[in-house]
Write a protein that binds this DNA or RNA. Sequence first.
DNA 1: AGCGGACTTTCCGTCAGGCGGAAACCCTGG
DNA 2: CCAGGGTTTCCGCCTGACGGAAAGTCCGCT
Lengths: 253, 253
Amino acid sequence: MGEGSAAARGSRTASARLLAVLDAFDAEHRALTLSALARRAGLPVSTAHRLVGDLLAWGGLERGDDGLLRVGLHLWEVAALAPRTIGLREAAAPSMGDLYEATHENVQLAVRDGLEVVFVERIAGRHAVPVLTRVGLRFPMSATGVGLVLLAFAPREVQEEALSSPLERFTERTVVDPRRLRSMLADVRRRGIAVSDRQVTMDALSVAAPVRGPDGDVVAALSVVVQADGAGPRTLAPAVRTAAAAISRALAR
Amino acid sequence: MGEGSAAARGSRTASARLLAVLDAFDAEHRALTLSALARRAGLPVSTAHRLVGDLLAWGGLERGDDGLLRVGLHLWEVAALAPRTIGLREAAAPSMGDLYEATHENVQLAVRDGLEVVFVERIAGRHAVPVLTRVGLRFPMSATGVGLVLLAFAPREVQEEALSSPLERFTERTVVDPRRLRSMLADVRRRGIAVSDRQVTMDALSVAAPVRGPDGDVVAALSVVVQADGAGPRTLAPAVRTAAAAISRALAR
DNA sequence: AGCGGACTTTCCGTCAGGCGGAAACCCTGG
DNA sequence: CCAGGGTTTCCGCCTGACGGAAAGTCCGCT
């Protein structure tokens, strides 16, 4: 016992409360009123009020002209110091640009966090297929191209854990059978490339390749997303693989 | 009395302490040991230890294989929700790419926060002049090209405040005379373009133009940084201006 | 105007829980 | 083997966080 919003409330630490305020924001709720925020964070308004005040003073939140609360610039500044974010982005940008030039499709870079992938950078073609992903977004590993790569090269324990929980289904083609997935992963490791064919949406297909850090372990994955019936993976694979390799080289320096 | 690290300690609010932990990180200190962090944050280790524990659990910090603490991915995810960050980036990316294609020089996008500019995005040419700026970095407004633009179009009060405090000098050519600066700003407003000629470093020159939001107010500034003795501002201005206008148009949609 | 509702801000008494000194623990290098 | 750095745990004191409540503010609606 002890769970349930009411009970949980009182037994939260001060930091947890502050962080809950930040967690009240997500892609669908980028701007909140104080009370909406309090509701979402599971806090009494008066408490939220004080915490928000602290965050406003610090720059972690900002109040727009419309009076709504949004995530502030200062938070972003700090966050920009995260490894696997700016540094990775900077190293990857030129090669991603090249890849975009070559394909004019969505080019994405993602890293693994726990059992999920987080998209760190993306070049969205003006005319490319619209995709669900966005920078800063989190996705389960099993479906996307980048996810397959990152899972294939993840430590044993992570793989086991990912395979043991039920796999989320997005389309009729999403692979949800662990045995099937396991063999796909072996394939990815062997070929150094992953293809997610209509496993996320029925109109898109992605081709991904691993990006390696200085010491050879896979730190990120690069992918290109194309129309499912367009140029096949066959032709894209080499380009993605070389671009990923170029990023790995840039990281080594 | 009352100031000085010791006295200040006790009189801090819980949130302030947590935020101080985050502030312990900066561009020169991206990875810290617990005690170094405590020192920088002005907190007793035991306190820092607990706060760090909370942040680790939340994902605001992460501990590397080397045992050092770094800013965590989850913080970045939240920060990515900040307006004038990802959204702006996404809107600006294509035009910035075009501008880079045209010039092959550093292309930068910045917004104003208080009396400073924060660089939000940058395309670093492989062969372009090395510059001091980096994404996530903060600079005083008076020297850089983007700063001049953002200051020129800032609200009256901001301008007054910026002009009333002494201007930081970077090179012998940095403008530090408020009267001189004031006339430069008028010029920027009139021409819709700002040139910072060797005001930050003696080898670089930047040309900047305003990016406007849907309601016409200046929300960001776009700039190109080139070798001080290279192609003059004369030739760059049109390109920068058009690219900035294209971004403004993208934002309007 | 007058009213109801939703949000924000302030106030304050209570008491949970944060705070931090100190000591134990754990390295690594001399 | 010890010295010096870091990390982690423990625990009693007491501060300052907590949140209910009420006042203040700003709508839109009739």
